[in-house]
Design a protein around this nucleic acid. Structure first.
Lengths: 146, 146
DNA sequence: TATTGTTATACTCTATAACTATA
DNA sequence: TATAGTTATAGAGTATAACAATA
């Protein structure tokens, strides 16, 4: 059958899902005085130590933007800078213990905050959704045997 | 701690998907000099005329924030204000023809912009993803008969 | 008094451009 | 010269508080 419902409906569903997810993220961020961007940066830095430029690339930001963002986090004792061991120009960024604790907390809270949504699906449905999203995001069409 | 694959990974996938969708929205906005918030406001105003407070509530913003946002849109000839016919205190907001045209264009562009993602799935996969997302968003667990 | 909206103020986020230091 | 990062500057988004006009 070639009368597809079309991508439009999927797009709408993606947009709705995105706003719902962002709302949860914003709520958690607000509760901890973290912007959405900071929250995202913290999520990335949770288990990594990156150079400023690397983190800026991850976030899709200019390095100057990241400078300010890390400035503010550093002032609050959540992140820290240190000169790179291998490149005299580079600066590593990483979370302080307090920052990491906050990142972990936020990560846990996010699952809680989204659980009203995710629990609308059975465990099998959750797994399938996850697989489909990852397949979509990672670009591979792959086999349909899901 | 038995770090289960559980809902955590789904949460990550949802977050990634949300950021990807938001990136598409931002890109479309940027191409038309509209912020994400403005884009959202335009989407809401596409077929409606609202009072400032109503629109602020829709967007989850303070009225003062909306004042500035509409100021800028009005300066560009995309939105317009008019006194409410029924309440001397209230102000209606609506899109100008140019603003409405822009809103329609953005709506179309979004599907195009997301197509690199959505086309990573087969039509069947797209349909299944859509169904799962809607089921999740609308809360009903429903049958699992994939 | 309560509500609607604007203005004043302040802070964050963001980018561009100019700059310093290192490679 | 090229790269890594910061600083200066500017504009948008955001909220709180103070205010004017209307209900």
């Amino acid at each position: 059958m070639d009368s597809q419902p079309g991508p439009d409906d999927l797009v709408d569903a993606l947009v709705r899902s995105a706003f719902a997810t962002m709302a949860a993220l914003s709520k958690i961020g607000a509760a901890n005085d973290l912007s959405l961007t900071q929250l995202r940066a913290f999520g990335i830095l949770r288990d990594r130590r990156l150079r400023m430029t690397e983190l800026a690339d991850f976030l899709g930001l200019e390095k100057s933007t990241l400078s300010g963002l890390i400035d503010r986090a550093e002032k609050r004792g959540l992140a820290q800078r240190a000169p790179s061991a291998t490149d005299g120009r580079a600066v590593d960024v990483f979370l302080t213990p307090r920052g990491r604790q906050l990142a972990e907390l936020a990560h846990e809270r996010l699952a809680q905050e989204l659980s009203p949504l995710t629990s609308g699906l059975t465990p099998a449905g959750q797994r399938r959704l996850q697989v489909l999203l990852e397949r979509m995001l990672d670009g591979g069409p792959g086999p349909e045997g899901g």
